[in-house]
C-alpha cells in the first residue's frame, strides 16, 4: 500500500537524516554575456547562429537557409502546417522545420530557453527534423544562474535546448541527429 510506504519512507528519512545543515546562497558569478561567446559555444556543440537585421528578415532568412523545407510550422508567420496542441502525431511526424521563438540565450553553453507557450505542441521541438529558434540578442545572459534568475517559473513544461539532438553511444563517436531535431539554428536579431 503506497500510503503506508509514504509514511514509512518519510518516517525513516526523518529518523535517519543528519542534524540540519545550512542552505548555501548561490552568488551570481558574472561572466561574459556576449553574442560572440554564445555563437562560438553553440558552434562547438553542433548548432549555428545566423544574424538577422531584425525580425522582419525572418522569412527571407529561412528561405535562404531551408529552401527545401515543405512542412513548416511556426507561431511567428503563416507556415505550411498549422499546429496546435491537438495536432495528431501523424502530422507532427511529417514536419521538416519548426521555427519557434526562444526566450533566453545562455552564452556559457549555447542553450536557449523554450517555454511551452512558444512550442505550439510539446512534441514539436523534438519531432521536427530541423529546428530554428528566434532570439533577441539582448536576451543573452552569461550563465545558467542568470538564466534561472530571469525565469519567473518554468510553466507546465519548458526546456533549455543546446544545439541539435546528438549521441555518442557508439564508441564515443559523435553523431548529430539522434531522435530529436537534426539541426539547430539560432536566428539572432
Amino acid at each position: 500500500m503506497s500510503t503506508t510506504s509514504r509514511e514509512r519512507i518519510l518516517a525513516a528519512a526523518k529518523a535517519n537524516k543528519p542534524a540540519e545543515l545550512p542552505l548555501p546562497t548561490v552568488p551570481d558569478f558574472g561572466g561574459e554575456a556576449t553574442v560572440e561567446r554564445f555563437t562560438t559555444v553553440l558552434a562547438g556543440i553542433g548548432g549555428t547562429v545566423v544574424r538577422m537585421g531584425g525580425p522582419e528578415e525572418l522569412e527571407a532568412t529561412l528561405q535562404q537557409l531551408f529552401p527545401e523545407a515543405r512542412h513548416v510550422a511556426s507561431p511567428l508567420f503563416r507556415g505550411t502546417v498549422p499546429v496546435d496542441r491537438e495536432t495528431p502525431t501523424s502530422i507532427l511526424a511529417e514536419i521538416d522545420l519548426a521555427v519557434l521563438p526562444g526566450e533566453i540565450g545562455v552564452a556559457e553553453n549555447g542553450c536557449v530557453w523554450l517555454p511551452e507557450a512558444n512550442m505550439l505542441h510539446r512534441a514539436l521541438p523534438t519531432i521536427t527534423q530541423h529546428l530554428a529558434l528566434v532570439l533577441d540578442q539582448r536576451r543573452i545572459v552569461a550563465t545558467m544562474h542568470q538564466a534561472y534568475a530571469q525565469l519567473p517559473d518554468t510553466g507546465g513544461y519548458g526546456k533549455f535546448v543546446a544545439g541539435p539532438s546528438k549521441t555518442a553511444d557508439i564508441e564515443q563517436s559523435l553523431v548529430i541527429g539522434a531522435h530529436g531535431a537534426r539541426s539547430l539554428v539560432v536566428l539572432l536579431y
Partner: peptide, 28 residues
C-alpha cells in the same frame, strides 16, 4: 529552481565534457 543553475553547470561538464546537455527539460 535557482539551485539548477549550479547543477546544470556541473552535470554535463563532469559527465561528457559538454557545456550542458542538449535538452534540459522541466516537466511540471
Amino acid at each position: 529552481l535557482s539551485d539548477l543553475g549550479v547543477f546544470t553547470r556541473l552535470l554535463a561538464r563532469s559527465a561528457t565534457g559538454q557545456p550542458v546537455t542538449t535538452y534540459t527539460s522541466h516537466f511540471a
